[in-house]
Design a protein around this nucleic acid. Sequence first.
DNA 1: CCCAGGTAAGACAACGTTGTCCCCAGTACA
DNA 2: TGTACTGGGGACAACGTTGTCTTACCTGGG
Lengths: 342, 342
Amino acid sequence: MTDQADGQAPGRRPTMVDVARAAGVSLKTVSRVANEVPTVRTDLAERVRAAMSELGFQRNNVAANLRSGRTTATIGLIIRDLANPFYSTIAAAAATVAERFDTQLITASSGWDPARERELVLDLFERRVDGLIVVPTGGDQSYLRTELDRGTPAVFIDSPPSGCRADTALLDNRTGTRDLLRRLLAEGHRDIGMITDTLNDYTMSERLAGAREALVEAGIDGGRHAARLYSDNPRSAGDAVAAMLDAPDPPSALFCGNNRILLGAVEELARRRARLRLAAFDDFEFAPLLPHPVTVVGYDTRALGRLAAEMLFQRLNSPGAEPSNYVIPTYLVDRGMELTGD
Amino acid sequence: MTDQADGQAPGRRPTMVDVARAAGVSLKTVSRVANEVPTVRTDLAERVRAAMSELGFQRNNVAANLRSGRTTATIGLIIRDLANPFYSTIAAAAATVAERFDTQLITASSGWDPARERELVLDLFERRVDGLIVVPTGGDQSYLRTELDRGTPAVFIDSPPSGCRADTALLDNRTGTRDLLRRLLAEGHRDIGMITDTLNDYTMSERLAGAREALVEAGIDGGRHAARLYSDNPRSAGDAVAAMLDAPDPPSALFCGNNRILLGAVEELARRRARLRLAAFDDFEFAPLLPHPVTVVGYDTRALGRLAAEMLFQRLNSPGAEPSNYVIPTYLVDRGMELTGD
DNA sequence: CCCAGGTAAGACAACGTTGTCCCCAGTACA
DNA sequence: TGTACTGGGGACAACGTTGTCTTACCTGGG
């Protein structure tokens, strides 16, 4: 075994120097060919390309990025849980936009942990991502300010940041819930139970605020069943429904703050073979199959992810403008199946 | 404005050189502090750390990786569609394992396109990912051989590769379907309709093979309704069910090759208020709410993703062994609700 | 025939970090 | 007091690529 480029030596990757030697040209010419610089003589370029495929050369983008100081063609996405369809849909939409810009997406889950979120952000900056899309966990995002000042763009999605100014792409939680409650009220319902998980969360408090707007409009300030709080476990949502129904003054309609809560409610109603005017935030793929009619607030999750990614790339290409704030609209849609009649 | 490190000059990031100057130590000492080398005098380390946070220093991992030649702490995952819960669950599980190894995950969707898959693989190798997890699209993966020979590990998940040898993590499609069909046969069903999408796919042909095993065992070689092929659109699966039911010899039981097909079948049955012995591959979150009883083949998708990632990291830490092949077991479970009786 | 002008290729340095080596100061021991 | 040793810090080179500058060559016109 000599130290000549063998092409088969395991572990050792051919570099541009190896290609240059094999093709009998200078390193720089190889670089030019790799970057498709047009001022390379055709025969040389051909020889270089031959040597490249002969040796199985692959450009080391780590080195190229370091030297050129240009973009790494990588953006980071920090969500709460990739296994949750809402977040994975956002990730998929963002990746589709990134693909248009020949950019890869590093997706990381913070798991609702502010400390973890921060760690992830710093890790991604050390990897020199070109930009960041973040679903904030509710903690403080002021740790981002230094990096934002240095020109790395960040877009917040689903919830706004606190402690720094940046682009945001949000759902119209408030209007959606207001419209939904208006509908229930227009149907004559006066006693509406509301089940949410937590109020410390931006999303849920916006939804409740929208609900309150509608209730206040109708002259009802909260209602006896308003804003009962439970965990985000469908089972405990079912328990909450049971408690409401077993109370001496059961509500005639029920608003579920998200689709997990709705599931728990539907299961409980199905178990009791009870019926109620059911309404919820979040549409989802299997909602049409629910064994109970329900009016849900729908929205285009893909559009949300797409919007955030497009805002990010726009800012990458034209930095400096003031942060902007886009909102994805919501709509009402009837789901579930009426299975009682025959 | 001087050219002194200002800490506020936008666009210019402080480097170790800047930190060294600010702390009055050598570049190398800064490097040692950043890497937590213990042989640095406490007072110097303290000064360096102070300068780091003063300047807002973040190590450039691109440069560190280039120089050290060590891992990039990044692995690639190529799936078919991140918006599909099956794949996003795999991605989430893989990311959880990666987190244990302080590694980030670049997830990219091939969209069932072999050419795109190949592009993505090459792009990820140019980024020098430490390893790759791939759900192959069914094309040829021999383009991976060079890189595998160089020692970059790859694990195939859900389907085996063709054209190269590598670790695989698969579902036990064959046994699962065989057990499911055995159950239908044991219940006395002799005429079982089977709806699949395509047979060019490894997964579906394994499932059909398992079904055939059970049928042959029972002395039925295929059956009149076996292996009718339709697209993966739930609507067209519904049409297929309609055609079977309207035929002069309707089956008494129906096997759906995946959960999308099952959805189409359930919708069609609900529309007709018809009932059938229903069975399918794939469990899913909302299966318990289906308005028709169904026995499904379940499996632990997270375990599949976890397994693949663990195989990858094991190979990263001990390369050279023969490729291994793990299979995730399946089980039968009854889903859906019986809504007829009252 | 010489020189200007342009084009293509190469030499060299640099990106920001880490690996290697060396040196210097401090200590222990003869 | 001199020598051997050790611990800690710094100088320098290197990772693989690209930016800049220079050089060599070729063409065409005076």
